[in-house]
């Protein structure tokens, strides 16, 4: 398929996935803010969301204090903020529109309608309807798109590049959520060991799990109390949990194997290496290295893969191609 088409499909999927993950994260942060806690914790929770997306600077330019309402507006409906849910869904739709002929009617209609509905809602209207209901709506629309994709699309290259974009974005997002949350939570955990501390631990780690739809999964897998180490293990090493890093990498390697071309050998090799590292990893080793350092490396490796995929498939230049004046 055309490189430019693949590029649009890939970014459509990335933006759509990003909007969904953002909605999940904001949702649980909001839920968590309803659990009794001190003002400092609340502020640091909202701060974490801004930090997660490296938006401290952009936020500081618009707002002088960190409050739930301001962060929510900034991350949900701020039209001037490129990473807001509003702009992610707009970018997803713009990319889809550029290649709508490649999508099935069901997919295009889903993505177009999502945008049209969001476009007409002010932030006040969203809050009036309940911000939790809004996040549910974002998640439902994402599920609908995914359902339309898996249910209607020919398993051709278009499908592969959409899937590839979604998996790369998801791997990146899960790693970032884990990184930021783990450290803010681990800090809290070591501070106090009274009853309230443990109860709030449960809620906080539970919320993190919910942000990646893994709360029930945790229960099923471990049948035990929630501990930070197991949460990290679940989100990094499980091959059968769709949002775990291992599972994402498995998909990425499989898809790269299908779309590989004459230029992609090194990309395929690096993806395979990253996958093998996850497949044969032990949590002890990761903690010995330091979770933060390990996740940092992983996020960099995903960034490297993204850049290589872009070069190999999405730009479409050829080494032998004459350069045009």
């Amino acid at each position: 398929m055309l490189s430019r088409t693949a590029d649009h499909l890939y970014w459509m999927a990335r933006y759509s996935e990003r909007a969904e993950n953002l909605a999940r994260l904001l949702d649980v942060t909001y839920q968590m803010s309803l659990v009794p806690h001190d003002a400092e914790t609340e502020r640091s929770n909202w701060n974490a969301i801004i930090a997660l997306n490296s938006l401290q600077f952009a936020y500081a330019k618009r707002h002088d204090e960190v409050t739930a309402t301001k962060v929510l507006h900034f991350m949900v409906r701020d039209e001037t903020q490129p990473s807001s849910i509003y702009n992610c869904l707009r970018a997803a739709r713009e990319n889809a529109r550029a290649v709508r002929g490649t999508l099935t009617a069901e997919m295009w209609e889903t993505i177009n309608e999502t945008w049209l509905q969001l476009r007409d809602q002010s932030f006040d209207a969203i809050c009036l309807g309940g911000i939790a209901a809004f996040f549910d709506w974002v998640k439902q629309r994402a599920s609908l798109l995914r359902g339309a994709m898996f249910g209607t699309m020919l398993r051709d290259e278009a499908f592969q590049f959409i899937h590839l974009g979604a998996l790369l974005e998801r791997a990146d997002n899960t790693a970032r959520i884990l990184d930021v949350k783990y450290h803010s939570l681990a800090g809290v955990q070591h501070g106090e060991a009274d009853d309230l501390g443990e109860a709030s631990d449960f809620y906080h780690w539970g919320a993190l799990l919910r942000s990646v739809s893994a709360f029930e999964v945790y229960r099923k897998v471990y049948r035990d109390v929630i501990t930070p180490e197991r949460v990290a293990e679940l989100l990094i090493l499980r091959e059968d949990l769709p949002r775990a890093l291992h599972s994402c990498m498995e998909g990425i390697v499989r898809i790269l194997g299908k779309v590989r071309n004459s230029r992609s050998d090194e990309t395929v090799r690096r993806a395979g290496q990253l996958y093998a590292a996850l497949r044969y990893a032990r949590m002890d080793d990761i903690f010995a290295r330091g979770l933060h350092a390990w996740l940092d490396d992983f996020i960099d490796a995903i960034g490297d893969l993204s850049a290589r995929i872009s070069d190999d498939f999405l730009v479409g230049g050829e080494p032998g191609e004459p350069t045009l004046p």
């Binding site: 398929m1 055309l2 490189s3 430019r4 693949a6 290259e157 590049f161 779309v259 071309n261 004459s262 230029r263 498939f313 999405l314 730009v315 479409g316 230049g317 050829e318 191609e321 004459p322 045009l324």
Partner: peptide, 15 residues
Amino acid sequence: FIDHDAVYMRTTRGP
């Protein structure tokens, strides 16, 4: 793009 008066399109599999 054009190479030796032939027209090619850039695809994920090459020209």
